[in-house]
């Protein structure tokens, strides 16, 4: 018996489990674990440093959370596209620009219908630093959940897949932060949530080659 014969026999003693939806299930578990971890991080971060978080305010504008979730959905589509080894030409990643463009239009409308002396307040709100920092600090559990899911996936473009995971992590962290943040300006959300997602995407692109190699 050759080495390969022995190897095949050893592998085939454990046939695959999980059926057709195993990939989606694994991704959902990774994401759910990550989001749960991010909630814990948010509570701890707020308890120790104060993130500007408030009790969940049901008057919080829904569009704030919707913007983050739309970004997360776009990032999820791109993430799935790069989870398989096959190169597929698709323009799905352009989806990510749809919520950004829409939010940019809302922000511009808000800005130009407000008196100029309020513009700085609209753009910088009451806590730019706490917004960007909190989103960046609570996103690692989502990164970890997604990297765990990718241990059974087969990304070949590590940087892009990492960036997509980073954007997804940042956007989901943004959705959590949006539920507890008091900022209600569209300009603020557009600028700083987008910057936070871009920062986590950059972190993901840097981490990808290290954690996604197989």
């Amino acid at each position: 018996m050759t080495n390969i014969d022995e190897f095949v026999s050893a592998l085939s003693s454990q046939p695959p489990k999980g059926g057709e939806n195993a990939a989606a299930l694994r991704l959902a578990i990774g994401l759910a674990m990550g989001v749960a971890g991010a909630v814990v991080f948010l509570v701890l971060f707020d308890a120790f440093y104060g993130s500007g978080a408030q009790a969940i305010d049901f008057d919080t504008p829904v569009w704030k959370i919707a913007y983050s979730l739309a970004l997360a959905f776009s990032a999820l589509v791109v993430t799935l596209q790069f989870a398989s080894p096959e190169t597929r030409t698709s323009r799905r990643h352009l989806l990510a620009f749809a919520p950004v463009m829409m939010m940019a239009m809302i922000a511009m409308t808000e800005l130009f219908t407000s008196p100029p002396e309020t513009w700085l307040r609209l753009m910088f709100g009451y806590g730019v630093t706490s917004c960007v920092t909190t989103i960046f600090i609570i996103s690692p559990p989502i990164f970890a959940g997604m990297f765990w899911a990718f241990r059974r996936f087969a990304a070949t473009d590590y940087k892009t897949a990492g960036a997509a995971i980073g954007a997804l992590s940042g956007a989901m962290a943004g959705a959590l932060y949006a539920a507890v943040s008091g900022e209600a300006s569209a300009c603020f959300v557009f600028l700083w949530y987008s910057v936070s997602v871009a920062a986590t995407a950059l972190a993901g692109a840097l981490a990808g080659p290290r954690f996604l190699r197989w």
Binding site: L11, Q14, P16, S84, P85, R152, F153, A154, W214
Partner: peptide
């Protein structure tokens, strides 16, 4: 073969 075994869920 190991990659097929470990990553077959991506097919």
């Amino acid at each position: 073969l190991l990659a097929v075994h470990q990553r077959q869920i991506t097919y």
